[in-house]
């Protein structure tokens, strides 16, 4: 006993091993096994079936639509996030707490309800639907509806990353730049942006992952028109429901790869954010 000191915060070895085994077993069961299953099922019928499923015209159309949606949604929500963070983190005004709650709101709305909001607005019996149909404008079951639903669902991500960071950083450097005669835009570009670039990138990556993978909200507004309004997740659903399992998992493996790349980027960025 007297020969070696024991860390009073260390558990006995048997307890340490048990806790580790339980925790890792749980994660293996719920995280690792399903991911491994995606790839195993995707290649269950061999490379040819995998390659054919991905090169099929309907799959390519889904990939194209998903990329278009993300290319519209990510810049718009990034611009919104920057504007919102600048207003919330740099100024005091009445109703700020309410505004922040409103920005967070899409997170607490079920994706299906999010999609429903746009159906109520633009559907055949919706508020604006008939008026728009008369004028030949199609929102629902078309690209605009998918973009709107995706914008709604991913709205908070960038703002949420930037607001706490900019609040903690304060405005001293911006004020110094302005005092030295820099214009407002120059200050934003050369002083603020470099300070928040990693958090901005982090928010951007999260927005992109969710935009490409959103299922519930897009499912409500898309109409599932093959080759026209099917995003990658909807294409996976259709293949799966048609019992084309190997093809469904082959296309799903693309989204799984995207998720794994997103996680790796997140982990790398989190380290940079911690280190400043």
């Amino acid at each position: 006993m007297s020969g070696h000191f024991r860390d009073p915060r260390a558990e006995p070895a048997w307890l340490r091993w048990t806790l580790c085994a339980l925790a890792l077993g749980f994660l293996a069961l719920f995280l690792a096994v399903p991911v491994a299953a995606v790839f195993a099922q995707a290649f269950s019928k061999g490379w040819q079936v995998y390659a054919a499923a991905i090169r099929e015209p309907m799959a390519l159309a889904a990939v194209k639509l998903t990329v278009i949606v993300a290319a519209i949604v990510v810049p718009l929500n990034t611009a919104f996030g920057l504007a919102a963070a600048w207003a919330v983190a740099r100024f005091r005004f009445r109703g700020k707490q309410l505004l922040v709650t409103l920005i967070d709101l899409p997170f607490s709305v079920s994706p299906v309800v999010a999609g429903m909001l746009f159906v109520l607005l633009f559907g055949a019996q919706g508020l604006l639907g008939p008026w728009l149909t008369e004028r030949g404008v199609r929102i629902l079951f078309a690209l605009p509806g998918i973009v709107l639903a995706t914008l709604f669902v991913t709205l908070p991500f960038v703002a949420r990353q930037l607001i706490p960071l900019m609040e903690s950083q304060g405005a001293a450097e911006e004020e110094a730049a302005l005092t030295l005669g820099a214009s407002g835009w120059k200050t934003f570009l050369w002083v603020t942006l470099p300070k928040i670039r990693w958090a901005l990138l982090y928010g951007l990556i999260l927005t992109n992952a969710r935009a490409m993978g959103e299922f519930g909200a897009v499912s409500v507004v898309s109409g599932h028109i093959r080759g026209r309004t099917n995003t990658i997740p909807l294409h996976v659903e259709i293949l799966y429901n048609e019992y084309q399992f190997a093809a469904a998992f082959a296309v799903a493996s693309l989204l799984t790869l995207l998720a794994l790349v997103t996680l790796a980027a997140q982990a790398g960025l989190a380290r940079r954010l911690r280190d400043g």
Partner: peptide, 26 residues
């Protein structure tokens, strides 16, 4: 440990439809 730590966020990153068919298969 770092890989496991990063993997914890998988349910946020993995599209829900993919999670659904993977869990159903498993």
């Amino acid at each position: 440990r770092r890989v496991v730590d990063a993997l914890v966020d998988l349910p946020f990153a993995l599209p829900t439809a993919v999670a659904g068919i993977a869990l159903a298969a498993v």
